[in-house]
């Protein structure tokens, strides 16, 4: 028998949860945990939940955006960014994860799923370093 992947399990959990809310959902969640325990999948539960989150986000049009910058983002920048990202990823809603890291020197780095747009000064300096050493 072929191995069942975490993605298969997460998809099944998501599809079976359709139309469930309130008490039903809580009963359902308990049943899922019992099932995972019975099938000895509890150790994989973190990965399954992560995958489930990705599936839910994809289905509901939610995009998680991780923005790293040297200083806190201005509201206007964030607003413009949200507009652009919603358009690019055809998203309905955006969940922000903001990280302030002074080591980035300036600019920002945007991570959506496995796509990265790195506009930080640190990255530019690194690229310049590679360019200059390559030219020698």
């Amino acid at each position: 028998m072929a191995n069942i992947s975490n993605k298969d399990i997460a998809t099944a959990i998501y599809e079976a949860s359709h139309g469930k809310a309130g008490h039903d959902l809580s009963v359902y969640s308990k049943a899922v945990v019992e099932f995972l325990n019975k099938k000895r999948l509890i150790s994989k539960s973190k990965d399954i939940v992560d995958t489930l989150e990705k599936i839910v986000n994809k289905e509901e049009g939610i995009v998680t955006v991780k923005v790293s910058s040297a200083t806190k983002l201005a509201t206007e920048t964030k607003h413009n960014l949200a507009h652009e990202l919603k358009h690019r990823y055809k998203a309905r809603d955006i969940v922000w994860q903001e990280i302030v890291d002074e080591n980035l020197l300036g600019g920002m780095r945007i991570e959506v799923n496995d796509e990265v747009i790195d506009l930080t000064l640190k990255n530019k300096v690194n690229l310049l370093k590679a360019h200059l050493t390559k030219s020698v």
Binding site: D114, V116, L119, H131, L132, S135
Partner: peptide, 19 residues
Amino acid sequence: SLKKEIENFTVAVKAEKVG
């Protein structure tokens, strides 16, 4: 020559696939 290299250096904005 270093100045020239730095002047000519441009960084294209691109989305990279990262894992």
